[in-house]
Write a protein that binds this DNA or RNA. Structure first.
Length: 762
DNA sequence: TTTGAGCTAGTCTTG
DNA sequence: CTAGCTCAAA
């Protein structure tokens, strides 16, 4: 049960304010999950709130699971009655019950990312959109943004004001939405938007849920978008017991619709709101926190917070500039090995955090060379994998064949002579006659005009489906899957998809994983149903990692596996992926202007872009518990050309007193790699003046194209590797580098930094 | 219809 | 550089 003595003062306050709106500004590592779980327990055990009146909303399944177990551990009775759910699965459950009111069949399916793409392709073709000019991907993003802003196709068209692009999006959006509805499907954004629509339209339904969820808590509130904000606003409108927990400094998902104003303006929306700040950090040393505080203090739009710990200063932060990207990786690998040898950290205590995924390659190579086990956390999700999508589509087609999206996906996988043109003809005939594509293939192929040879192939395919359907009556789902792979020769496809033996094994692992998931589902569900299985799992975003051994494991592990991983494996992941995690020994890599902060934010007019990047830096720094090392390279290959970069401005925002230029104590292990550092740097004792001068030297070494080094001036002719020849219009001293404006003969005026552009006078 | 050569574009990413 | 996709030849 909840014991408030385990909490610090602000934490206690956050737990005890149970009535009315409450904003908890929870800095990184300040124990917000603790507060949330204690709060749930306090409501139920102390305030006598019924468990089923409590709702906890999170963003990720992982967070929901964690919250669930912790609430179960803490709440004395009825913990299972507390609703702990992600936004999407909450909405899914609500829509499930009231789909008819919105004109959907209650057995609607979820359209995931891959399905979206297929639909969009179709839509663009139907509307004869020039996909060279307007990319499918861009439309999908635009539609997603529109839905996150609760804009209907009509709203969108209304706001287009004759702008060609917006007009185009409005048309595509409208068509896309019709296709989804016709196939009784909702995409992820629909789940939220349609629930909001439902609540706005059906007052009694809304009131039912308001009475059900009298106490609402929202985690990671800074990541909410407009639709989610609206949803919460509606749900909490009657009782106004809304507790939101978040950290505006950790808002790093603007690019996918998160609206930081939701948290910044919370007190404006709810004037009676109580605000609690959690600033005591239980994760990192004071030096790490000071660095994080110093960096984030450069942001304008934020609620001022300052993290502190009672645990002491700890080590200073390490910074090193290496020559190239591979040197950077080798340096990190060597440093990790030295730390492990010294007995200070285990491999599993170490994490490499990078800005972009492409940076991982060098580190993988370095770790492989040094024989260090690692895990690369990929953004790829299990249910989004081609093979899983194929196999589940097969299963659904064999089971019912009602969903043309799924049938179309696999009808020619592996290739069996039914090409795109043939599929279109079958689809057209099916829509015309209100049949499914599978029915057409089975019963009406000869009526489809000009199918030619394809007709026979399509019939054969349908016959196989029907034959397996009959035999499948007393098969388990996993047996059905095995039969599918045999009957439809899917192993041929696996061969085609895998160019290496490792890849092939990976695919086989996926098949086994799917079988396992099917078995588990079937055994634990009284009335197993494939649509239900798909719906549940479609929302589960298990991330995958791939490791040196080629084995594939899911990110969510059993405790034993997790323990093993902690011991043995260095983790490589993006900074975004690291949010919410913590590691004793952290490496921030690629700390270069143009990489982190990224290109776009450096050149952006919008100051907010740089601020978001800085928040990401804040998130990255605060992942470290004990030791933080930041590294960068003077040059690296980006998009096929060598790019020279200056040290990240974020490094320069960290006070020098927190930095340590000392080299790590490395035992010579015969790795054959000697970092390129002047010998005298190693010998210098750790005195601050010297630290400063080394620091300054390191900084200076990174200055490419400083004053006086430009070989050209205004109105000179210059050559650029990519853009060709042009005339220099303007040279501006941007402080750290020159900003050069050039009019290129072939592609017009471009503005660039001299250090990046490598312009040559001609 | 299939396959492979050539072109293009290139943050981050939950459900 | 390289992954992913389009288009042209077989």
């Amino acid at each position: 049960m909840s014991d408030l003595r385990n909490l610090n003062k602000p934490q206690q306050q956050a737990v005890e304010v149970t009535e009315g709106p409450l904003l908890v500004l929870a800095g990184a590592g300040s124990g917000k999950t603790r507060v949330l779980t204690h709060r749930a327990a306090y409501l139920i055990d102390e305030k006598g709130v019924k468990p089923w009146n409590v709702l906890c909303i999170t963003f990720t399944n992982k967070a929901a699971r964690e919250m669930r177990t912790r609430i179960n551990d803490m709440v004395e009775t009825g913990a299972n009655e507390v609703t702990v759910s992600t936004f999407h699965s909450l909405c899914l459950r609500i829509l499930f019950k009231h789909a008819q009111l919105l004109g959907y069949d209650p057995r609607f399916e979820i359209c995931d990312t891959a399905d979206q793409k297929a639909v969009m392709k179709q839509v663009c073709k139907d509307l004869e959109v020039d996909t060279k000019r307007f990319k499918e991907r861009t439309f999908i993003n635009a539609i997603s943004n529109a839905k996150n802003e609760l804009k209907s196709p009509a709203d969108y068209a209304h706001e287009a004001f004759g702008d060609e692009w917006y007009e185009q999006v409005a048309k595509v959006y409208d068509r896309y939405q019709r296709v989804l509805k016709a196939s009784n499907t909702m995409d992820f954004d629909d789940l939220i938007m349609q629930t909001v629509n439902l609540f706005k339209r059906e007052k009694e339904v809304l009131e039912g849920y308001q009475d059900r969820f009298r106490y609402i808590m929202v985690d990671e509130y800074q990541d909410t978008n407009t639709a989610q904000f609206e949803l919460i606003k509606l749900l909490s409108a009657k009782y106004r017991n809304l507790c939101v927990v978040g950290d505006d400094d950790q808002s790093i998902y603007r690019f996918r619709g998160a609206n930081i104003r939701n948290i910044l303006d919370f007190e404006k929306f709810y004037p009676e709101a109580v605000t609690v700040r959690l600033e005591q950090n239980y994760r990192s040393t004071q030096n790490i926190l000071d660095a994080a505080n110093a960096v984030i203090a450069n942001n304008e739009g934020r609620k001022v917070k300052s993290l502190w710990t009672s645990e002491g200063e700890g080590d200073r932060l390490n910074f090193r500039q290496l020559e190239s990207a591979s040197d950077e990786a080798m340096f990190v690998a060597e440093d990790i090995r030295a730390q492990v040898k010294a007995g200070r950290f285990k491999y599993g205590d170490c994490a490499i955090l990078m800005r972009t995924n492409v940076q991982s390659k060098e580190f993988e190579d370095a770790f492989r060379v040094m024989g260090i086990d690692y895990d690369l956390v990929k953004g790829l999700r299990f249910w989004d994998t081609k093979i899983i999508k194929d196999l589940t589509s097969y299963m659904m087609t064999v089971a019912s064949g009602m969903n043309d999206m799924r049938t179309a996906r696999i009808i020619n996988v592996p290739a069996r002579g039914i090409g795109a043109a043939g599929i279109e003809k079958i689809r057209a005939y099916a829509t015309l006659h209100g049949l499914s594509m599978l029915q057409v293939c089975h019963d009406h192929v000869d009526e489809v005009p000009s199918l030619g040879r394809t007709a026979k192939k399509a019939k054969e395919f349908a016959d196989m489906v029907y034959s397996l359907r009959e035999r499948s009556a007393d098969m388990s789902y996993s047996q059905l899957l095995t039969s599918i792979i045999m009957d439809f020769e899917y192993d041929k496809q696996m061969d085609a998809d895998a160019d290496t033996p490792e890849k092939y094994n990976e695919l086989k692992d996926y098949v086994d994983k799917l079988k396992e998931a099917l078995d588990v589902y079937e055994e634990s569900t009284p009335e197993p149903d494939l649509v239900d299985f798909m719906r549940q799992n479609g929302l589960e975003g298990n991330n995958l990692s791939s490791s040196a051994g080629g084995a594939v494991i899911q990110r969510e592990l059993t405790p034993e596996e997790e323990e093993e991983q902690r011991e043995k494996k260095v983790l490589i992941m993006t900074m975004h992926n690291a949010k919410g995690l913590e590691f004793p020994n952290v490496y921030l890599v690629g700390m270069e202007d143009g990489l982190f902060p990224g290109f776009a934010s450096v050149f952006s007019e919008d100051e907010e872009d740089m601020e978001e990047e800085r928040r990401l830096c804040y998130v990255a720094i605060t992942r470290a518990k004990e030791r933080l090392t930041m590294v960068c390279a003077k040059h690296r290959m980006i998009n096929g050309e060598t790019r020279y970069s200056k040290t990240s401005r974020f490094i320069k925002e960290i006070p020098i007193r927190l930095m340590d230029m000392k080299l790590p104590d490395r035992e010579r292990g015969g790795g054959g790699f000697e970092p390129e550092v002047p010998a005298k740097v190693k010998a210098i004792p750790r005195r601050s003046e010297n630290v400063y001068s080394n620091y300054a030297k390191a900084m200076k070494g990174s200055q490419i194209g400083v004053r006086g080094e430009l070989s050209y001036g205004v109105s000179d002719r210059v050559r650029h590797v990519k853009f060709g020849e042009g005339t220099v219009l303007e040279i501006k001293n941007g402080g750290r580098d020159y900003e050069v404006t050039v009019e290129f003969d072939s592609c017009g005026v471009k503005r660039m930094f001299a250090g990046f552009a490598k312009l040559v006078k001609v």
